[in-house]
Design a protein around this nucleic acid. Structure first.
Lengths: 216, 216
DNA sequence: GAATTAATTGAACGTTCGTTTTATTATCGC
DNA sequence: GCGATAATAAAACGAACGTTCAATTAATTC
């Protein structure tokens, strides 16, 4: 046999991407074989090489587009010129929503970095650093404005990102908590962690029990 | 050739464990070959099978002993009958110290769970759950005693553990921050996150800037 | 110092891996 | 409807994988 009836390159490529994300998230990049992936898609292994020259190219494509998606999402969600508290809230909300929605892709992007070549690893890490820098800037602005009290902005940014991204480890859609509830609680924890002081303007939009922990 | 002069089973087994932790942490379990591991130790691949019947047995041994070590460390560090704030402080200090000291083993235990058989995965997760339950108990006791203000103790416990364990991702010994500085900052962040109220007894031992964030 | 046990080597086994090549069929532009 | 091209199948490649086995030598026991 050869070309099958109804076969379509675009559809096949999309199916390969989706199956690859799920399989790599479940089994790991090294443990997933190209034959396994092909079987999941419903084609022969050789067909995969029409879309991705090597297995590593496939992995890199998934990671790069995941990071680009994250940066694009933040670029859309970021408030134009707001106070640090609102900006931090937007960052947390965007981060949690994005990562819950793309649990598997996040797993792949976080766990399989070591399978990339040096050059490609650098590329992905550059995007990641750019994203993290956004948070550090918000924290630093907040400290300078006197609305956050933070020991070490770099360390705090890392701790916050680890905490928020960790949501994908235990969160399962449709279980005890909804995405909204989770986001609200993480917002509350974040604001307390950075010692956010609620002023008159942002007090109109409370963050869970933040008010309980802050001197009023 | 056969048995080499000066060869010693105990020493070889210890060398295998250490090399395996480092190699798996760097390359991943699937990507590390038994030949590679043997070369690192300085023996032939076949010699490994004198100590570990299969590759998975080796992985499981490393993970089980890591978790047992963590539980043992907490068992030693845990205060007998103290207030929730002190107990939480002890938990954080022990967690950070243990994980920084065993960065590679932690990496292995967290990243390679999917390579275990179902039965062994259950065993490891049981130990992990027991460890996490200790933190949840502290948080619940603190809420009941009125010294913590927390929305959801289960979610908060997971967030704290993710945040603390995340230290191994970016921390490198001998760089900008010392272990003591990192621990102090994490303690401070933790106490603020749980809305810890400092009373007279524990005020003698301040947690960084915690006092700035709490109404006094 | 002979017998026994512990530790390791070197070669080999069958399997699976990522990838390439060649052939074949479906679809599309004209 | 015919040529060009896109999409796939089928088979094969060499390399590497985890693991086993028989042979061999060092250390220990008596």
């Amino acid at each position: 046999m050869a070309r099958t009836t109804g076969s379509d390159g675009e559809k096949t490529e999309a199916a390969v991407r989706e199956a690859a994300v799920n399989l790599i998230a479940r089994l790991g990049y090294e443990a997933m074989s190209m034959r396994q992936l092909a079987a999941e898609v419903g084609v022969q292994a050789a067909a995969l090489y029409r879309y991705f020259p090597t297995k590593e190219d496939l992995l890199f494509t998934l990671m790069r587009e995941h990071m680009e998606g994250l940066l694009a999402a933040w670029s859309t969600a970021r408030p134009a010129a707001a106070d640090p508290v609102s900006r931090l809230a937007a960052y947390v909300e965007n981060h949690i929503a994005f990562h819950i929605e793309r649990r598997h892709a996040t797993h792949v992007s976080n766990m399989e970095l070591r399978s990339l070549s040096h050059e490609r690893l650098t590329q992905v890490l550059k995007m990641r650093t750019a994203y993290e820098k956004e948070l550090r800037t918000i924290l630093r602005d907040g400290v300078e404005a006197g609305v956050f009290s933070i020991d070490d902005t770099g360390l705090t940014a890392m701790a916050l990102i680890q905490m928020m991204t960790g949501v994908i480890v235990w969160f399962r859609p449709g279980e005890r908590l909804s995405v909204t509830e989770v986001t609200t609680t993480y917002l509350s924890m974040t604001m307390r962690l950075v010692g956010a002081k609620i002023d008159a303007s942002s007090a109109a939009r409370p963050f869970g029990r933040v008010t309980d922990a802050v001197a009023l």
